[in-house]
Design a binder for these strands. Structure first.
Lengths: 367, 367
DNA sequence: TTGAAAGCGCTAACAC
DNA sequence: GTGTTAGCGCTTTCAA
């Protein structure tokens, strides 16, 4: 026989107390405050509990009474399983899980698929607070979270949710440093691969207007940093082709790079706003026999393990720390009343995929 | 000001009903059974709710009443973050998350570190059922799970928990096929790298006695399958060196392989019970300049993406399906009363890391 | 040390 | 279409 499903409890604290001829308080204390009763009474309670098959205080009832669920809810806007496939999200999750573990809290992953307007999972979540990871502005699930009277911290996006803690990284500064680095190497004809800028599916070139209106501030910041880095050598950003991809995968990175290079064979560098896209670009370069970095420079963002292993030149962001910080912000808030915003540093990682453009390309580009 | 933490609710269903001059039922219905009241009354309720800052029915109270938490608890015996680093565990998690998502259930990751005897997180979890992933026999956290009157499914290990569903894979059959394959290729002098066999930390050779007593049936089965495969060509298993490693990482795989080959330079093949260990063995072979498979055959188990990419000869197990199946077993149990046991097939994947032993080695081994 | 009383906030019969 | 009643199982003052 399977263990019963959806049973009412075989015994309750009350029935146990009745059986023992003591009050409910006493039984409760046997579990929650061992020092409040004699050792022998306590063991008697516990033994009778075992005999009657009483599984201990019901966690839901206890939560209702204590107003604590001992769990934090995590909201992701993608399919749940995305979190386990995207390496940057994974690092975040790892850090967050660690923080929860340290605090003895569970971590509740809430299903909340992007196009499903049903926010009931947010309403149903029995948690003490929420962490919201990288969702677009005006996301209905986020709004549902904000309606609940629980502490919340946002990671990455959106920025500036009033009254809510945030942890992010210096996206702009990282890209600025990378831009300068590439400019210094001599690149002037660059193309960009970026992640989705809107909720509506779109794959193609994103003009400056679209960039400015992006619903994902992180992408906006990264593009902005890059623009500023190159502005210092007088590059006209409006002429830089920025190829956007809705799905975030190596395959899409490769296809985006293919289209970009087909349309702009003169490019000497492909700058990607994520490592995953960059790995795709690398794959494409290999397929086409374009030596990297001799013929083509490729860069990423994130510093995920796969990319570092591949020697990618990229900007490292401390994803695990970001996750841990999100957890700590939520869990150790004390009586703090002002919202906090933490911005973690990023760091340029010089790998083997960026180098000066070839002489011929330099001439071509008029240097 | 931060959004309030640990507040009592600003308004409750009862206070809202009072304000509106209707009964609590009506307000409840406005949220849960829209068809039970007139449209205008419903909108009036919802509007007043907004005005009063009523965030909708409290999920904990609702759970207590309905006896449903709409979440499943996941028990892992390692640190939580381990799950995010081990590729096989990750695949399982992905599948499980998908199943939960489809059913509109949350997935609660419960902290339960191996050496921490504190099972209170299990007692505290507000869930409708548990999935237990690959824990050793007689694990205290598992026992705590079994005490709770909730449906439970075990993935992989332990086997034969009475009255509990299980999903696993054909570990033995997979290894049997691999053993035969290697025997056929001509290998007779093999060494083995396996994962931990006991809860107590141990790194070194595991003799047959230790193998038989292993607390991890999955390892036992894999070793047993290999033994049977080679028994068909008359290999004496008791002479096969089996190197055990407590930690499961590429580094440990490399160090284990190093020790194994130092002690047994005559080996023509290193069979690993996981891909992660095998990747370590490959790394070591490369470091030592041993050509694979010409000089050394290396095999794994799992079929994780990294390994497949590396061309590893291995046994693929459908990890995502296993996860999905675990979720479905738990969620779609209907009125079923007999426990179910599902064993998913495994499949030999012939990569580029297994080949016949060199001629000289064959002579040496007396073929 | 122990017990009595008072809810925590909600849902689901069932009656009107 | 709406209200009354009766808990779900527990914790926690407070008093004995």
């Amino acid at each position: 026989m399977t263990r019963s499903s959806r049973i009412r409890r075989p015994a309750t604290l009350a029935s146990l107390a009745a059986e023992l001829g003591v009050s409910r308080t006493t039984v409760s204390n046997a579990y929650n405050r061992p020092d409040q009763l004699s050792v022998q009474l306590r063991t008697r309670v516990l033994e009778t509990a075992r005999r009657l098959g009483y599984p201990g205080p019901d966690p839901v009832a206890r939560s209702l009474r204590t107003r604590q669920a001992r769990a934090v809810g995590l909201l992701l806007t993608e399919e749940l399983s995305f979190a386990f496939r995207d390496p940057a999200a994974l690092g975040f999750l790892e850090g967050l899980a660690q923080a929860c573990e340290n605090a003895g809290q569970g971590l509740l992953l809430m299903p909340a698929s992007r196009d499903d307007p049903d926010v009931s999972t947010v309403h149903q979540a029995s948690v003490d607070g929420f962490v919201v990871y990288s969702v677009p502005e005006r996301d209905p699930h986020l709004e549902a979270v904000l309606e609940r009277p629980l502490p919340t911290v946002v990671a990455d996006q959106p920025m500036n949710v009033p009254g809510v803690d945030r942890v992010g990284v210096d996206d702009r500064g990282g890209m600025l440093a990378l831009g300068r680095h590439l400019a210094e190497l001599g690149h002037r004809r660059i193309g960009v691969l970026c992640m989705r800028l809107s909720n509506a599916r779109f794959d193609g070139y994103a003009d400056v207007h679209r960039q400015r209106r992006a619903a994902f501030p992180v992408q906006r910041e990264r593009l902005g940093g890059l623009r500023d880095g190159f502005a210092e050598v007088g590059l006209d950003w409006s002429r830089v082709p920025v190829m956007e991809r809705f799905e975030h995968s190596v395959e899409e990175g490769a296809s985006a790079a293919a289209q970009l290079l087909d349309d702009h064979p003169e490019l000497t560098a492909v700058v990607c706003t994520s490592d995953v896209l960059a790995l795709g670009a690398l794959r494409l370069a290999e397929q086409r026999g374009l030596p990297v970095p001799e013929r083509l420079t490729v860069t990423g963002f994130d510093g995920v393990p796969e990319a570092v292993r591949a020697g990618l030149t990229t900007v490292r962001q401390p994803v695990r720390e970001k996750g841990r910080m999100a957890g700590e912000l939520l869990l150790n808030r004390g009586e703090r009343t002002e919202p906090r915003s933490v911005v973690l540093p990023t760091q340029l990682v010089e790998g083997r995929t960026a180098g000066p453009p070839r002489e011929t390309d330099r001439w071509f580009s008029g240097l």
